[in-house]
Design a protein around this nucleic acid. Structure first.
Lengths: 115, 115
DNA sequence: ATTACATATGTTCATCTGTTCATAAGTATA
DNA sequence: TATACTTATGAACAGATGAACATATGTAAT
């Protein structure tokens, strides 16, 4: 759906948001959250906050198939949430930057305080 | 999918997260983000940071049908992201608490810094 | 009571998503 | 090269999702 918010709209009333018109960013932000909205992907990101990991380790820890993990990692990589480097036979994945952790933490705080 | 992370896992390595085992919370957190992952719902939440609004105002501003907005508001209400009070013929919706705004802002910060 | 307005709900449908299976591609070692 | 190991990819399927339409419910005023 195409959202029609006026471009000059300050949207979220904060310093951050005043610099960033809503209409053009809503769909980007929604897509960002969508990447965090799947338990498998979120668990992967969560694991990677502990340190870099290869695909098979992620799969084993999660109890998921290698194929599924690889598919989800591709999504995470395309959306620039993770990056990867090859190490011999393995491919090591890591968080792209620290903001992902911040977002997850903020979300967790919300859950904790809305019991 | 059922994610198998050990319950004693500290998950996100922070004070907040050490108090909160991952396995049980991943799916909750994913569901929370899922509610923010739709442009219509996100735009509604964004609008409500400006102030409380009735359904028809939201629909008009968004260029969405009343039906669609009402459906999405029900989802947001069930997940305790918004609350509502009736005012005559209208029903006024407002953000349940301030954390939603925080999460959106943190997400926006991520978008800004990952250009 | 009737009419008008505002919101909620049920249903249907097209589309998207996550998962699995099978298999290909990349890499290292014997 | 042959083999084993690791990761990526393509196809197919079930289930979930968002939107639209029609209609019901709730509220106020005439």
């Amino acid at each position: 759906m195409t959202v029609h918010l006026p471009d000059e709209c300050g949207c979220i009333d904060s310093a951050v948001c005043r610099q960033m018109p809503c209409a053009g960013k809503i769909s980007e932000l929604a897509e960002f959250f969508k990447n965090l909205s799947d338990p498998t992907r979120l668990a992967i990101l969560c694991m990677l906050t502990h340190g870099d990991k290869c695909v098979c380790d992620i799969a084993e820890t999660l109890g998921a198939t290698q194929s599924n993990v690889s598919h989800q990692l591709r999504i995470l990589k395309q959306s620039k949430l993770v990056k990867s480097t090859r190490d011999g036979k393995s491919v090591i994945y890591s968080l792209e930057d620290g903001h992902i952790r911040d977002v997850m933490e903020t979300g967790l705080e919300h859950l904790m305080e809305s019991l």
